[in-house]
């Protein structure tokens, strides 16, 4: 598969990464080099093979551990919000959201 500049535009939009028109060509070329590498997978016969989403699933039954329903986290707002670029009245500020 081969990425076009139009597809790059859409992917960059989905990923929320600005790609300037000047860089678009070079970025597309680089990505196509990588896509060339991963396209080898298309030729592999994987009929009947289960996808492996957890690295140890061949070894043991992998199963989510459950946490008891208890409040364990204290209020660390002051410390956590000291990290934020813009805060007011305990709220994180972002450019206006229009629904």
């Amino acid at each position: 598969m081969f990425l076009t500049p139009a597809q790059l535009h859409r992917i960059a939009l989905l990923a929320r990464i600005a790609v300037s028109p000047e860089e678009a060509r070079a970025v597309t070329d680089r990505l196509n080099q990588v896509l060339g590498l991963i396209d080898q997978l298309q030729a592999v016969d994987t009929r009947g093979i289960e996808p492996m989403s957890h690295p140890l699933d061949t070894q043991q039954a992998v199963q989510q551990r459950l946490r008891a329903d208890a409040v364990t986290e204290p209020d660390l707002r002051a410390e956590i919000q000291a990290l934020a670029p813009a805060v007011e009245q305990g709220l994180y500020l972002v450019p206006k959201v229009i629904e």
Partner: peptide, 18 residues
């Protein structure tokens, strides 16, 4: 593209583990 790339990669991942 999910099936062709991601799912396929996870299947080949199993072949490698095997």
């Amino acid at each position: 593209y999910y099936d062709a790339y991601y799912l396929q990669a996870q299947k080949v991942r199993r072949l490698i583990a095997k």
